[in-house]
Amino acid sequence: MSVQVKDLKVYYRTLRGDVRALDGASFTIADGEIMGLAGESGCGKSTLGRSLIAIDGRMRYVGGSVSLDGAALPLDDQAAMARHRFTAVSLVPQYAMSAMNPTRKIGKLVTDLLRSRGIAPDTVLGEFRRRLELVGLSTDVLARYPIELSGGMKQRVVMVISTLLDPSLLVADEITSALDVSTQKAVAEAVVEFRDRGFVASTIVITHDLSILVQMADSIMIMYAGKPVERASTDAVVSSSRHPYTRLLLSSLPEVGVRYEEHRLSGIAGRPPSLLNPPPGCRFRDRCPLAFAKCAEEPPFVEVAPGHSAACWKA
């Protein structure tokens, strides 16, 4: 078991109180597994991804544990976490390159980054070049400025940088959402390639786009209003989901290759509850067509079939 998360809770501080953005998540990711983390905006997926990397000033670690290859990550001690970042856990953010200094060439950016981490650039640059070529980029990019690369190229460069030290866990946060259809594919395939070659042990791919997860993830976890509601293998989530939210979500997605002459899809009426003071019980029950009296009690996130967990009384 490579990554083990137990009842992780991370809240956001606001002047009106804590926003319970991540309110108890438990799951494990095996070595070599790509887990997709999906849900709508505000469901806590990005909070979960980010808290595995760094809990910043606005966030508050409330409880729970994360262990990586058997050793606990010091989530409540950011100074200690800094030692694990980039080496053991690594993040590919959505707009990585726009956060980088546009007046520096890529090569310079990389060597600066390595030096700041106490790594002699010469020892890893050869491998860096090799991996650039692996994701279909020429090593010429090292002599270019960030602005000269397309979005998809930037995203792949950042991926190569962040996985250079073969981390045990890679968190890829919405790395495909700002990209065009065709560049999306190249980036997604790079994620799978890196897993296949053992550059990263476990990967979490965070996205709101379920269909891109189908292309790359081994398993999918769906979150709703700060909690995981379903976790299963990709095929099981798509074809035999147990949680009503997952099912409604899937049925609201139009697809290419289907004609919609007569039948119409429908969305889910209503909005998720405010996470400032979420109501007790199942957080989906106001929008759930299957809700009944028992839903006022919070359903546990339990295994409903082998390798398939869900948080629903009717699952």
Binding site: V181, S182, Q184, K185, A188, E189, D209, L210, S211, I212, V214, Q215, V238, S239, L250, L253, E255, V256, G257, R259
Partner: peptide
């Protein structure tokens, strides 16, 4: 729409369609 999606003829249209991630099929 049925003709463009059902019988794409330009290579670019085809490439786009083949790159669209789908729920029930993998690339």
């Amino acid at each position: 729409t049925g003709l463009v999606f059902g019988n794409p003829c330009h290579p670019y249209t085809r490439a786009l369609l083949s790159a669209v991630p789908q729920l029930h099929a993998r690339w």
